[in-house]
Structure formats: C-alpha cells, structure tokens
Nucleic acid binder design. Structure first.
Lengths: 358, 358
DNA sequence: CTGAAAGCGCTTACAG
DNA sequence: CTGAAAGCGCTTACAG
C-alpha cells in the first residue's frame, strides 16, 4: 500500500470575477471595468472591487477567458525547427530572437517557442496554440500545411530566412552580394588561390569536400547563396562543407584545407564567424600566421567569445532582422499591410586579411 | 495624401465550428467530437464534418475557446529575467531549457519565454498570460508578487536555481560540495597556492578582485556557494570576480591573476568552464603551459567550442535539471505533489590539472 | 458612473 | 452513435 501523495496542487478554489463583483456589491461589468481600467468607474467603486478581490484572493481576470473574449492572446509564436540547444548554438539566431523580443515589445506579448522537443510522439502543433501571430526562423517548407492552416485562421506570419511557403513576408539578407564583397576584397589584395568553408547544405549535415551531389540536394539557401557569391569572383573555388556552424567544425575544415602545404590556399572565405575562428585555429596549429600566411574572411559580424583577432567579416544586421520581423507583426496585428525586408551586410575589414606572401 | 495600405490582413471571414456543423448537417457537439476524436462518432459522419470544414476553410477549433472551456492552454511559461541574448550566452541555461522542453514533451505544450525585452514600458506580465504552469530559471525575489498571484490562481510553479519566494519546489545542484571536490583534487596533487575566478556576485556585475563589500552585497547564490566550497579547502583563497561567464572574462581575470610571476598561483579554480577556457588562454599568452605550469579546474561540464584541452571540471547535470523541472510540472498538472531535487555534480579529471612544478 | 444582456467558440455531461 | 443545453470567465456595446 503506497501512501497518498502528501499534497496535491491546483486545489485552490476558483474565484471568478462574478464572485468578486457579488462580494463588492456591484455588477460583473463594473468589476471588469475596475480591473481593466478601460471605462469610467468611480474611485470609490474601484477600491471596493479591489478590496473584495483581495479578500477573496482573486488574482485578476483569467487570461484564457479574456483572450477568447478579446480575440487576442498576447502571444507570438516563434518556430525554430530544431532542438533548443541546436538553435541556440547559433549566435545569429539568438540575436535575431533578441531583436524580435524588442520588436514586439509594444505588444506586451510573450514569445512562444516551437522547437523540436526530441519526442516525436509529442509535437506541439503550431495550429492548436493560441497565438496572435507567428514568426518562422530559418524554416523549411515542411511547415507548409500548418502555415496554411494559420493563414486560413487569419494569423499574421513573417518568415526570417527560410521558405515556409505561402505568400508570407520574408526578412532576408544579401548573402550572395555580401560574400561577393568579401571575395572581391581578397582579390583586390591579390589572392588567386582561395578556398571556402561552407555551412551545411542540408539537414543531414554531411562533412567534407563539396560534391555535385551535395550541391544538388541543397535545402539551405544561405549556404548556396554564399557559395554563389564566392564563385562570382572565384568561379572554380574549392569548397569544404562543415557539418555545423561552430569553431570545432571550422577547425576540422581548416585542417582539411591547410594540411597539405602544396595545395594550401592563401585565403579562406568562411561562411560564418565561428567557422572562421576555427580556420584561424587550424592555421595556428600548423604554425601559420594570420594574416601573414593566410587571410581569413568570416560572415556574421558577431563577437566570437575568446577570439583574439579582429576578424575581417561581413557584418549582417542580426538584431535588426528580428526587430523588423517583430515590427511587421505589430503592423499586421493592427490591420496594416506589411512587406518583407531585404537587409544589406557590410564588409568589416579587420586584421585577418592581407596580401598573400610574395 | 498618403495612399491606403495595399492590403490588410486578418480580413479572413471567421468560420466557426457551428458553421461547419450546420454545413455538414450535424450538431455542434458532433462536429466537436469529429475534431477531437474523443468520443464515438461514425466514420461517415466524421468524414462529412471534415469535408464541410474543408469546404468552408475551417482550420480546426479555436485554441482560445478550447483553452477556456478545457481550463488548459497547453503553454508552460519560462521566466529568465534577462534579455534573450544574455540568457542564451550561458550554455548551461540553454541545456537546461532543452531538458525542460524534453521534460514537458508529453504535455505537447509550448514554452512561453518571459525575458526582458529591453523596453521597460512593456513588461510582459507573467500573470496575464494563459499559462498552465511556470518554470523560473535563476530568478531573483523580484518576482515575488507575480509568483504569489500565480499561486493564488493555482498555477503550478518550479524554480531552477533562484529564490523566487513562496514555497515553490526548487531544482538545485551541490555548488559548494562540488567545488570542494575540485579543490580537494588540487590539494591532493600538492597545490598550496590556489586562486579562484568567480561568477558575478550581483546583477551590476563588477569586475576585479573580490572585496568584502562585493561579497556582502551578493545576490547570486551560485557564486557564493562555489566560493564557499573553494574556501572549505583553501580558506584564504585569492578571488578574482568576473563580470560574466565567458571566455573573454576568463581571459581578463586570468591575466590579472597570472601576470605577476611573483604572486602567480599554481592552480586556478574557475567557477565555469567558459571562465576556465579564458584562464587557459591567459596562461598560454604568458607562455605558460597547462597543466605543467598551471592547473585549471572549471565548472559545468559543457563542451567549450574550440577549446582543445580536456578540461578538469565539475560536471553538472544541466539537461537533467531542466528535465526534472519539466517532469515536476507534468506531475503537478496531473494533480500529484512534486518536490524539488538536489542534483549532484561529478568531478571529471581531464588534462588540465597536474602536480605543481617542484 | 453603473447594470442587464449577449456572446466570444468551444466542450462536456446528460439524454435519447 | 447523435443532439439540446449549459457553461468555461470574461468584456463590450447598449441603456439608463
């Protein structure tokens, strides 16, 4: 015989606005007004209602009822399509999320995270959650069905880099043009033999030299566009695919690219700052000095924690992207139209690029 | 005269379950059953309802109405008390959040993030959000009022390392004992002259040598407890306070501690792995070799991206903490009692500790 | 400034 | 297996 649980929660007696009104001797309408402050109530009445609430232990209007009645829940959904720990390994995503929080601040709304929980049997379905709007970050078309359902329900949506389908406003950046800028910078320094380390081309995240097969199976636009930008300047550029955006992966790719002195490029275009930091690490392991022996260009413009170099990189407006998405959502919720935005990245010339050794 | 907006959103005509039912020629109850699948409906009827829904463009029951009626919203609130970018700089927090997502997976609930949006005028108030439960991560007592309101409403709460007030189950780890273990390891190797790099002691995040003033104004238990653990073994230990848990801060603190060869300790106890990585970097800058010239102990047991050393550290169960919180929430929501958990960390002896040079 | 009434859209006992 | 009725707890025109 096992003992009964010591105590159960949720046994709090439900007090409703009606109870409070009755206790205060006013109508429910008046009590409601006293709480919302959105109507004319005499101070005396208001105080009486608040006192009654206090006596009964009433904690304010039930958000569920309020949201049904008002048609708004005060919640904005954010879809990430990865596990929390994977999504937040990417500093750009974190900054974007931060900007988003800022962009919707005026709504006083919370951010409801939709991620892969690791339990395939328990998917939180986007379309049974009480959201006022949804922002998709880096999502694949696999959400098409749910996206469609949300659109039918009139829920405003915005996508940040991804192709969720539907006619959803998109927030994008100039991946190709920006990378081309970085490549041109290298060419203007005199580099002829340049290699690139790319982001994964698809979810399976193969690692190694880029093959036509990998390229034709690509689902990640960012990697493809940045590669195009590099090819605009160096058409036959050698490419090494990383399995993720991390220093560790950059190290591995860097080793693969730099190990053989005979085939060693004089410069590397990394598709992210983390990858660039790894490439620099690999160079240092081999006794190479950056930028004297190897030039390295990154992408993102984040501060890589612990990296001592001032990295030459394409600075993308990560926070602004999120904020723009948030502002678009706010606009749509107020009944206005909202369009996407295509942001521009800037070349920051730091101290990791220089002319090649003669 | 400015032009009208091109198009407004939200103009979708609202289709309700009643419309669908009418269209299918059944009652609302039956239509409801057809969607929820929780009652006996003939296949023929079900199909008719679904077909009607399709024709009318009905995307399924409105989550707001459903949550009012059912008394559950399917949302678990997570309070972080920082900006998104600050909170997610900490790998331990990310892992904890990941574990939490896992722990509540069976609920099929989403995680509603409450963070500082940067806009003080627009605080998302915890107590007007439709949450079924709330998990506080590293929160200060400043939430006491809201916490109380939630308790009055019978909303289950769990705290992970923090002192939100109230009689909320807490998930904690053995900060003091674990650090003591690390210190004992150093002592057993023969170290006499040991210093420590601590986490911030309060929100203002002063940086520099630890003073009695800083210590007495401490609000962050973690830093205090880990310091105590170090003092259990090295009572007069010299302490340098970092302004955050990062490699960069570890570098700074490391430089301060190691620059002067005359006062240089033979070992450093860092209160986080990121700080430890920074201390190692500082040592290497000075031409010191780890562990030959300096032993370094970390805390957390995360993989520091790009760190080449196998760090000696106290491995805390970050993911398990989150999962435990999630499971406690699930239990409470099913009406059972839930207690807190105090987790134990383990000493991992890597390759960054060795006997001091003779 | 206050109250009576309707209704937000759904689900759930309860009959049949 | 299906339907009629009540009600989740609130807010909002509408009268007064």
């Amino acid at each position: 015989m096992s003992p009964e649980p010591a105590a159960t929660t949720g046994a709090v007696p439900r007090v409703t606005l009606a109870d409070v009104a009755a206790h205060a001797g006013v109508s429910a309408s008046t009590a409601s007004l006293a709480f919302s402050g959105s109507g004319p109530v005499s101070d005396a009445t208001k105080e009486r209602v608040l006192a009654a609430a206090d006596e009964l232990g009433y904690a304010g209007p039930d958000p569920r009822a309020r949201s049904l009645r008002r048609g708004r829940s005060g919640i904005v959904g954010v879809v990430l399509e990865e596990r929390v720990r994977a999504a937040f390994l990417d500093p750009v995503k974190i900054q974007t999320l931060d900007g988003l929080a800022e962009g919707i601040a005026s709504l006083g709304a919370g951010l409801l995270l939709f991620t892969d929980s690791g339990d395939p049997a328990a998917p939180v379905s986007l379309d049974t959650a009480p959201v006022d709007a949804v922002v998709l970050i880096g999502c694949s078309p696999k959400f098409f069905r749910q996206v469609e359902a949300l659109q039918r329900r009139g829920i405003p949506m915005v996508a940040i880099e991804g192709a969720p389908g539907g006619d959803i406003p998109e927030i994008t950046i100039d991946n190709r043009e920006a990378t081309r800028l970085g490549a041109e910078h290298l060419r203007s320094l005199g580099h002829e033999d340049v290699a690139t380390v790319t982001l994964p081309f698809e979810a399976s995240r193969a690692r190694g030299p880029l093959t036509p097969e990998i390229e034709s199976a690509a689902t990640v636009d960012t990697a493809v566009e940045r590669l195009r930008g590099a090819r605009d300047v160096y058409p036959g550029i050698r490419a090494q695919v990383a399995a993720a955006s991390s220093i560790e992966e950059g190290l591995e790719a860097g080793r693969a690219l730099l190990a053989d002195a005979a085939t060693r490029p004089t410069a590397v275009i990394a598709q992210s700052d983390l990858l660039a930091a790894g490439v620099i690490g690999a160079a240092e392991e081999l006794g190479l000095e950056v930028p004297r022996d190897l030039s390295v260009v990154g992408f993102d413009g984040i501060r890589v924690d612990g990296l001592q170099h001032d990295l030459t990189t394409l600075v993308q407006p990560s926070v602004a992207k999120g904020r723009a998405a948030g502002e678009a959502v706010v606009r749509m919720l107020s009944g206005q139209a909202a369009a996407g935005t295509d942001f521009t990245s800037e070349l920051h010339v730091g101290e990791t690029t220089a002319p090649p050794r003669a």
